[in-house]
């Protein structure tokens, strides 16, 4: 009985503390970060939007996407990105991986099918296809592909846009980020950045 009374008493004190904490941590703190972000990094804070020429913008009407969010890319003249399990593909309102385990028959079949499609599209043997090309990412929004998968697509993209393979390969290099300090993460090619560069080069040619 005494314990129940003290639990009640401390709950009241707890309520007062919680209200104060909510004002400080739940309102003031995020707004301070918001204010600082508006000053030091307004572009990043608003979602790293880019225009069709690759310029930074904070206006969604002028943007073709976010520099760090992958988008559906199913045009044979452009670089394809990875399979996505986010909604119908690259849906930021539905982010997730497939969550299939390593022995799931559904996953095994999906990998086989993707390998067959890519082998036909790029005219390469299946063993040349890197793993990221046939697997869904964790977020479903992966903005990147591996250097190997980009290399694989160079001949097709060059042909489709009337560019030489060397030209396209240079664009791939420009869109490639190596490991940070040579050790963190993996080398990756930003697909949106690359496709914007391809379209610009094709327009100029």
């Amino acid at each position: 009985m005494k314990d129940i009374y003290s639990l009640f008493r401390f709950s009241l004190a707890g309520l007062r503390v919680l209200v104060a904490m909510t004002l400080v941590l739940g309102i003031a703190y995020p707004l301070v970060v918001l204010g600082v972000a508006k000053v030091v990094a307004p572009w990043q804070a608003n979602g790293s939007l880019v225009t069709a020429t690759g310029a930074h913008t904070t206006d969604p009407d002028r943007a073709v996407g976010s520099a760090i969010i992958g988008q559906v890319s199913d045009d044979d003249a452009l670089f394809y990105n990875r399979p996505s399990a986010a909604g119908e593909g690259y849906d930021p309102l539905n982010t997730y991986g497939s969550n299939w385990g390593p022995e799931a028959p559904e996953l095994i079949q999906a990998i086989r099918q993707r390998q067959a499609e890519i082998a036909e599209r790029e005219d390469v043997p299946v063993r040349q296809i890197p793993p990221d090309a046939v697997t869904a990412s964790a977020s479903g929004l992966d903005p990147d592909i591996s250097v190997a998968y980009a290399d694989l697509q160079v001949p097709r993209v060059a042909r489709a846009n009337g560019l030489t393979e060397d030209e396209v390969r240079r664009l791939v290099d420009d869109a490639t980020t190596g490991r940070t300090w040579g050790i963190l993460g993996e080398p990756h090619v930003n697909v949106l950045r690359l496709n914007i560069a391809v379209q610009q080069a094709a327009d100029a040619a």
Binding site: R82, G97, S98, N99, W100, P102, L107, I108, I111, R112, R127, I129, P130, P131, D132, V134, T135, A136, S137, A138, S139, D142, P143, D144, I145, S146, T177, G185, E186, H188
Partner: peptide, 12 residues
Amino acid sequence: LAGGAMEGKEVR
């Protein structure tokens, strides 16, 4: 089959 455990992982 895929050549690496990249299902559910990000390239970067």
